[in-house]
Write a protein that binds this DNA or RNA. Structure first.
Lengths: 341, 341
DNA sequence: TTGAAAGCGATACCAT
DNA sequence: ATGGTATCGCTTTCAA
């Protein structure tokens, strides 16, 4: 295995000092245009690539971004968001010579340790912060650690980090209007808890939209796990007939699928006896029967925007929030007119 | 933000040279026991941690493992294996001061590039190779790149890398026997293609087990995607009644769920009209209705064993294959006696 | 057993 | 515009 060419190999070939090679290769001023071109040519010819470890040692840069995800190990697989999100990150990262360091942890202790060691060991230049909580301690923590970050959604604490945002208001309004137009009056929402920011926001949007249509909102909070989604469904279906919702809007698709399953086990036909929707378009939603009405979502787009935002920030650009195309309604088989009684 | 203590800080405190500190901190011979202890004590006191970049520069070690996953971006999210698998990797990695570099790529070109650059840039010390193919080019590629690897399953090409293995024979035999005992005679398998090693193996085990029970195997190959799982189901259900299977064993759980959905859309009740099983126990399998009979699986266990195997190898231990507890049957609601006609 | 110094591959500063 | 050299944090000789 031939030794990889280093900057001194390039310098020797070009007959210049390695300092100059560094300047030329990094497109820094102070190099004669001809010399620069010659050096760059030689570098590509002999297949030189910068060594991130060496570079990082002087630069204090890791050329890597960190993603720490905390999930209950039992339910970790049911989140349909991350795979495509990471694939989206990847496209941008690889283009820019960076890598993704992923840490999947089970509890808050391990989570904090992960953030601390990744930063302290200079393994990442910035963090991608997903699943924001109310009063999220990670914003402060990361600030203390002296690395950059980008958040998915807007934190409710002061932050100097940019956020990538998406407006769910029109999508949720459209979804609710669609249900009301079908004839639904009692519409329930199986939401996340108020400690989870995006769950909180969606819940508020839901209540507002339902009220706006003159219908009756009903909310059952959960932790977003399919198990609690199932339990919430049981609770709703156990209500006396005149309070029982005819449509249930679930905070995410896995909960919707679990909820459908509960309803079907009780002998309810979907959508004839009960309409069901998700709020976060996923592929599995297309596989179940009936296929799930939901809002669209493009995790890969999230990934691309998040990665470029954070990399720009790490490269010294001033932080700027970015906004994705708003969510839109996808009608599939799980929704229909309420039963006429 | 206080500067992190370096090895010279430890040396100064201890009143020794930094070379000696390095020896002491790495548990190398040639240091007086008392001195060593004193140095180590001081190191922990002032919170010293080795800087992986600096260390790697001399060592040619990245203190990181690489996982490159190639998936069609559209179906990437449906694989229930990876999240828990990665969580399993993580527990071992963090214990040993290592990190996981994850690359999710869409096509074979990007895949090869990922392997090459991660190795060439010294970003990882070894690769975790999943989803083995027949004649898998990655074994040779990684060997050429001069880094280590561990495979999930046994490659069909010569390899010097250790493998982590799991015996599916007893589980598949148990599953088939269970179906036969219920009264099924025509049992179909929606399998992976022969280019995918674990699909190939399971298919062979299935055919062998069904024949062994005196029943009739029927196999439809797919690419393991839910889409093709659905198509295969249609194909099977379109067969004339006397050829049509009464039970379908799917190569993985997402295909089984898609298949159930197809059957249910055709008005078939599961398990009364058709029994359905997966082969790779997942959590989503518990959420659908009816819940999916399948073989158990512990992706986190895979992760832990794989990580420790590869780290040992990187640390210089001779490669040894490891074997997991064999698969066992999990009976849930999607299987029952065949319809009496 | 310990210290001193060289080197890993790059960047950055100070001369010229 | 270019060369020389110190430096990043750590490991690894080689002497003493």
């Amino acid at each position: 295995m031939a030794r990889r060419p280093t900057i001194v190999d390039v310098a020797r070939e070009a007959g210049v000092s390695k300092g100059l090679v560094s300047l030329a290769l990094n497109d820094r001023p102070g190099v004669n245009a001809g010399t620069r071109e010659r050096i760059q040519q030689i570098a590509t010819d002999i297949g030189w690539r910068p060594n991130p470890a060496a570079r990082g040692l002087t630069n204090r840069r890791a050329y890597a971004l960190g993603l720490v995800v905390r999930r209950d190990p039992r339910i970790i697989e049911t989140d349909p968001f991350f795979a495509a999100f990471i694939a989206g990150l990847e496209t941008v990262l690889s283009d820019r010579g960076q890598v993704l360091v992923l840490s999947l942890v089970a509890d808050q202790d391990a989570e904090e340790r992960a953030y601390r060691t990744l930063a302290a060991d200079a393994r990442v230049d910035g963090f991608i912060v997903t699943d924001l909580l109310a009063d999220d301690p990670r914003i402060d923590l990361i600030t203390t650690l002296g690395v950059q970050a980008v958040t998915l959604g807007q934190p409710d604490v002061p932050t100097s980090f940019p956020a990538v945002l998406r407006d769910y208001a029109p999508g949720i309004a459209e979804l609710v209007r669609y249900l009301v137009d079908l004839g639904h009056v009692r519409i329930a929402h199986v939401s996340g808890t108020d400690t989870m920011l995006h769950g909180h926001e969606r819940r508020q949007l839901f209540v507002h939209a339902v009220r706006g249509e003159g219908a009756e909102p009903l909310v059952v909070p959960t932790d977003f796990s399919p198990e609690q989604g199932a339990a919430a469904t049981t609770e709703l279906l156990d209500l006396p007939a005149h309070e029982r919702p005819t449509a249930i809007v679930y905070g995410n698709d896995p909960m919707a699928i679990a909820g459908m399953s509960v309803a079907q086990q009780r002998g309810l036909r979907i959508p004839d006896d009960l309409s069901v929707t998700g709020l976060d378009g996923s592929q599995i939603g297309r596989l179940v029967h009936p296929a799930l009405t939901t809002l669209d979502n493009d995790p890969a787009e999230w990934g691309r925007i998040v990665a470029s935002t954070l990399l720009d920030l790490v490269d010294g650009t001033a932080p700027v929030d970015r906004t994705l195309t708003p969510a839109g309604l996808i009608v599939r088989g799980s929704t229909g007119a309420p039963p006429t009684r």
